[in-house]
C-alpha cells in the first residue's frame, strides 16, 4: 500500500473505534481518576522496602507492585487525556471532588492515613515487613472495593478500557492479597 493509503487506513481504524465506543459515565471518570492517587500511595509504600530492611520476599513483592501500578497509572492517565478530562498527577493523597460548587477532599477506601504512613516510615526489618503486609492488604482491599462500587453503579463500566482495566485491578490485587496473607504467615513465624 502507498503511504497515503496507509495513513488513511489508520485514520479509518481510529474513527471506527471511536464511533463504536460505548458511553462513559461520571462513575467511570471518578474510578479512573481516584485510582491514580490510590496507586500512587502503594508506590510510595513500596519504595520504602529497599531502605527499610525488608526481606527479599517483601522487596520482590514491592518491586512488582511498583512496576504494575506505574504502568496502570499510565493507562488511567491516557484514558482521561484521550477524553480531554482533567488528569490527576500521580501523587498520593485525598481525591479532590467538587460537590454543590464546594471542593471536598475524599480519602479513597483502603488508603493509609498520615499516621499509618508515618508508622510505616519508622519501621525497620521484620517489623517493616509485618506492617507493610498488613497495610498493603488493607490498601488492596480498598482497591477491590472500589471495583465493586464501580460495577454496582448503573451504567458504569460499559467502556471497553474501563471494564477490562477494572477487572484487571480486581483479579491482580485479589491474587496479591492471597499472596500477602501467606507472606504474613511467613513473617510472623520467621526465626
Amino acid at each position: 500500500m502507498p503511504s497515503a493509503e496507509q495513513g488513511q487506513a489508520a485514520a479509518i481504524a481510529r474513527a471506527r473505534a471511536d464511533s463504536l465506543r460505548y458511553p462513559f459515565t461520571a462513575a467511570d471518570i471518578h474510578f479512573m481518576s481516584a485510582m491514580i492517587g490510590h496507586h500512587a500511595q502503594a508506590i510510595v509504600m513500596s519504595r520504602m522496602a529497599p531502605t527499610h530492611g525488608a526481606s527479599p520476599a517483601v522487596r520482590r513483592l514491592a518491586e512488582r507492585i511498583i512496576n504494575a501500578q506505574q504502568d496502570e497509572i499510565a493507562t488511567m492517565q491516557r484514558w482521561l487525556a484521550d477524553r480531554r478530562l482533567p488528569v490527576p498527577e500521580a501523587r498520593p493523597g485525598p481525591m479532590k471532588m467538587t460537590m454543590d460548587g464546594m471542593e471536598h477532599e475524599m480519602m479513597m477506601p483502603g488508603m493509609l492515613t498520615d499516621a499509618q504512613m508515618a508508622e510505616l516510615e519508622r519501621a525497620r526489618g521484620p517489623e517493616f515487613d509485618r506492617l507493610f503486609l498488613v497495610d498493603m492488604i488493607q490498601h488492596h482491599r480498598g482497591a477491590t472495593s472500589m471495583v465493586r462500587d464501580l460495577f454496582a453503579t448503573p451504567g458504569a463500566a460499559q467502556d471497553e478500557t474501563v471494564f477490562k482495566f477494572a477487572n484487571d485491578v480486581n483479579v491482580d490485587q485479589t491474587t496479591e492479597i492471597a499472596r500477602m496473607q501467606r507472606l504474613l504467615a511467613d513473617v510472623m513465624t520467621a526465626p
Binding site: A10, A11, A13, R14, A15, R16, A17, D18, R21, T75, R78, A81, D82, D159, E160, T161, K164, F165, N167, D168
Partner: peptide, 13 residues
C-alpha cells in the same frame, strides 16, 4: 485479557 481500547485522534497527529 486486554486492557487498551483503540486510541483517538490526538495520537494520529
Amino acid at each position: 485479557m486486554m486492557s487498551a481500547g483503540f486510541q483517538s485522534s490526538p495520537a494520529a497527529a
